[in-house]
Design a binder for these strands. Sequence first.
DNA 1: CGTCACCATTAAAGCGCTTTAAGGACATCA
DNA 2: TGATGTCCTTAAAGCGCTTTAATGGTGACG
Lengths: 362, 362
Amino acid sequence: MVVVSAAESVRRPRLQDVAAAAGVSPATASLVLRGSAGPSSVTRERVLDAAARLGYRPDRAASLLARRRSRLIGVLMDVRSTFHAQLVEDVHEAAEEHGYDLVLSTMTRTRDEGRAVETLLDSRCEALVLLGPEAPAARLGALDRQLPVVAVGRAVPSAGVDVVRAADDEGVALAVDHLVALGHRRITYVDGGPGAISAGRRRGYQRAMRRHRLGENLHVMPGDHGEESGARAARALLATDLPPTAVVAYNDRSAVGVLDTLLRSGVGVPGTVSVVGYDDSPLSRLAHVDLTTVSQESQQLMRHAVAAVVERLDGGRMEHREVVVPPRLVVRGTTGAPPDAELDDPRGGSRRGSVRSDHGLT
Amino acid sequence: MVVVSAAESVRRPRLQDVAAAAGVSPATASLVLRGSAGPSSVTRERVLDAAARLGYRPDRAASLLARRRSRLIGVLMDVRSTFHAQLVEDVHEAAEEHGYDLVLSTMTRTRDEGRAVETLLDSRCEALVLLGPEAPAARLGALDRQLPVVAVGRAVPSAGVDVVRAADDEGVALAVDHLVALGHRRITYVDGGPGAISAGRRRGYQRAMRRHRLGENLHVMPGDHGEESGARAARALLATDLPPTAVVAYNDRSAVGVLDTLLRSGVGVPGTVSVVGYDDSPLSRLAHVDLTTVSQESQQLMRHAVAAVVERLDGGRMEHREVVVPPRLVVRGTTGAPPDAELDDPRGGSRRGSVRSDHGLT
DNA sequence: CGTCACCATTAAAGCGCTTTAAGGACATCA
DNA sequence: TGATGTCCTTAAAGCGCTTTAATGGTGACG
């Protein structure tokens, strides 16, 4: 007597079973199921019928093993990041258009970037898209010698890999331009801490301010990626003699920290102080946050990333490339003319000149 | 002359190469690399050496195909949900302890639950852990006939699958108890819309209120999963003659909506109104939100989920089971005694009796 | 010195699918 | 009728690894 374990009580049908049911060879069945030309329409139908009747689903591992190419792109992400979530969604779409499938691998407490990447390698990925990788450039370069690697978001110095990123400096410059156009002069920047992305945005702020001849108003507050750093900066700013009329933050989370502290202290936004974030994250879109921010154009970013992969895989490109996607300012409800606009700028009263999105709350 | 495509310029070493380098057969090499007993320690070392020298990494597809069991658990998730992110992290840990690996599959705009599950099926998963599945119970039951299925978070009526969920009614009851102990009487609940989870929490509120003989203060406001519904409810409440002294929301996002609206309207929290959320999401832990909430104990949830899978796979359990994990109240800074505590309750002044977490901001 | 038991090692048979070259069937043409 | 194609279909050889039964080589034992 054979004891069947629960796990295998129902054996799933194999290609062979379908072929038998359709009265053809496995080879023909395979051809039909993958849509290759060859089989006649009558055979075609018989196979398709049989497959449907049996509820056949091809075994991925087997087909992966047998196929010459896997058409798999490995994506490294941090499952905790909402921005990565957005990117994953868009990379899914882009990959699909090129007939590639995705393997997701995420970092966790007990699973660092290295291990996550190894999983991808072991899964027969033909190329890797790394979202905000932190590995040293040398390691990325070494990886790229094994298979095409695209780093998203981070500018990898020696360009040993393809890079797709947003023009961070331009993004912050857009924010500054917007605020200056509204009449702001005293514009403070809340920093994002160490790191290349942070440096780019900071530089963008500094250059834009100088460009507007506001060099003497340059003011960078220390900060990091989180809400709390924004809150801290806002508290510090409120304690100042002459607080700024506008704050640009490294990212949306930091900006929300600023926003929250200001509102709790009874400071009107944008009545008294305007706030701009960065990322156009779901957070910023919440009706009750309604944050003016800078969009990284996730969809475009991922389109370029997938295009880069495809070119190297299918197009034979060998050299590396860096694509810089221009960001886009998303004006929502946290920016307006400064309270003393009448004094600083003859153009006008509160809120005049403010271009609002259609959210209209706040 | 052979033109080598960029994709395959460096062929990765196979088991055979390692075996050859170590001067043994592939069989031995396989045995060593998987740590099976048999090979002598000297052989062992030679193989391990060779593998390291060649940078060998086993091909997952091949080993999956050859192995009798895949030891793979498929996890269906929504990459946009921060709570799922937490769950994934914890399920990773739990699975690892039992020697199982994970395959993640997420839904996106263009990829519904059904397709995401199919991917998992095709990947040779031995069991499925579905985070907050929305498929009809019948479909889940059908799936379970193919392989063990655990639904997390959602109570599936006819119990055609294993279920692991938090005791939602108890959770809300904890929140109500806490508020009543602080002296609150007029406690309003902001609903989460249709759905089983929402119903459970609503029921928990109603029962707890009646238990405290506060049946006449029962007040359920309509709402859903998002921040905006909380904000809406708060605005409505503020327009009331006699606003409640405490609000319990369906989830943290809704609670944050409430919180935000109250603060912007100059209503003190918890001075004038206390607010309680649900989920203990990262959102609630933010220092500037510091929300009293109910934790679903993600780690325990996932431990049970994996245990359920393992029991059915390796333990031969056949019948279905439902595990209900008791939730835990996390007291932070948004709850305190009601403003009129002196009148309602002789026990005391504002804030007395409030047990705070060590966040201490607000 | 032959026999047995035992150990480390390996040959070989797949896992389920893809792919290519070879095979058959039939129609067309000389 | 035989030669020449044109289509369809299929046999067979893997993909890279796991696993089991079998191999050969020990030393112990009678």
